[in-house]
């Protein structure tokens, strides 16, 4: 307590009343303890998963991440397919969400009539409030059939015959698969990226924009040459934030990805993701090795998302400092 008070000399010089000193100490201890709990939560989660997954890591070594084989009966577990599935679906999600989010931010800062900005922004942010299981159910019962009936036949007709690209869009249009999962994920991360983008677009100094206008820039040129370069690190931070969300998203993906442990080049085919594999199989895991492999998957997911989110946070800290905020 004394150490922290020393930073606020004007407070340290206040004579503590006898009755207050003990209670103050206790109150200080409680709040510090609670703050430590936040750190312990993160450390404990990482440590418990490393511990729970140790059997899988010890048994398979590096093969755990490079092997494609996931065979519960034979007791062989390789995480290559879920890892690829996670990365591919998150990649599709970003391809969709990034341009859309920047478009939304631009619309809300420059185009929309002023009265409509608040309500539209709120509606977009509500996308983030809808529980992910609702996305999953809607994806399974409404969106996947829609994809199977209208979008995927068209894709495999038009793009399927093309060289290289065609391989990505071949296969039967069953609706459930990496493309559908990626699109649903994309919708889910739009609000996270667009709300940061909107905030930083609004924080670009007016003088900069006005100078560009004075030089005869069109509004598109202001966006591409002034606003985006000025907010670059925050936008990249927001993209990483969205990526962190997409990588760890569980329920929505579990519904529409198909839980297939086969590696397929086609985006129309079912696959698996780390989170979906855990959600689908954990309660069925009947051997220690099986359970340990799933926890090891969780450990990998946790470490990767922590790295991605740390990068996001560092990039966002920088712009906040530019804007003169403390956090």
């Amino acid at each position: 307590m004394n150490a922290t008070l020393a930073h606020e000399p004007e407070l340290a010089s206040v004579p503590a009343r006898r009755s207050g000193a003990g209670a103050d100490r206790l109150f200080g201890l409680v709040t510090v303890g609670a703050a430590w709990l936040v750190l312990i939560l993160l450390g404990g989660a990482a440590a418990s998963m490393a511990w729970g997954g140790r059997l899988a890591f010890k048994t398979f070594g590096w093969h755990f991440v490079t092997s494609r084989e996931w065979d519960a009966v034979a007791g062989h577990f390789g995480a290559f397919v879920p890892i690829v599935g996670t990365l591919v679906t998150s990649g599709i999600a970003l391809i969709i969400a990034v341009p859309v989010s920047i478009g939304i931010a631009l619309f809300l800062t420059d185009i929309a009539p002023r009265w409509s900005r608040g309500p539209i922004a709120m509606a977009i942010e509500l996308l983030a409030a809808i529980p992910s299981i609702i996305y999953g159910m809607w994806g399974l019962f409404v969106f996947a059939p829609f994809m199977a009936a209208h979008v995927e036949p068209w894709l495999s007709d038009k793009l399927g015959p093309l060289p290289v690209l065609g391989a990505l869009f071949s296969g039967p249009p069953i609706g459930i698969g990496m493309l559908t999962a990626g699109i649903v994920l994309g919708i889910m991360v739009i609000p996270f990226i667009s709300s940061v983008a909107r905030e930083v677009f609004g924080a670009v100094p007016t003088a900069l924009k006005e100078s560009a206008v004075a030089l005869g820039s069109t509004r598109w040129e202001i966006l591409s040459r002034v606003t985006l370069p000025y907010t670059r690190s925050a936008i990249i931070g927001a993209i990483f934030l969205g990526l962190g969300r997409a990588l760890g998203e569980t329920m929505a993906v579990t519904f529409v990805l198909g839980n297939a442990h086969d590696l397929s080049l086609s985006l129309l085919m079912p696959s698996n993701s780390i989170a979906a594999a855990i959600a689908n199989e954990f309660t069925e895991a009947d051997t220690d090795l099986y359970r340990s492999s799933l926890i090891a998957l969780g450990f990998l997911l946790f470490v990767v998302t922590l790295i991605v989110l740390t990068i996001a946070k560092l990039l966002l800290l920088r712009i906040n400092r530019q804007l003169g905020r403390t956090h």
């Binding site: 993160l42 418990s48 946790f302 998302t305």
Partner: peptide, 27 residues
């Protein structure tokens, strides 16, 4: 400590919730 906790807290805000499930399972 506060700046570290604040940083970690923001990361926990976006961390995958399935991991919390596994953590409590082990715990």
């Amino acid at each position: 400590l506060a700046s570290v906790v604040s940083f970690i807290n923001d990361i926990l805000l976006s961390a995958p919730s399935i991991v919390i499930g596994l953590f409590v399972y082990e715990l």
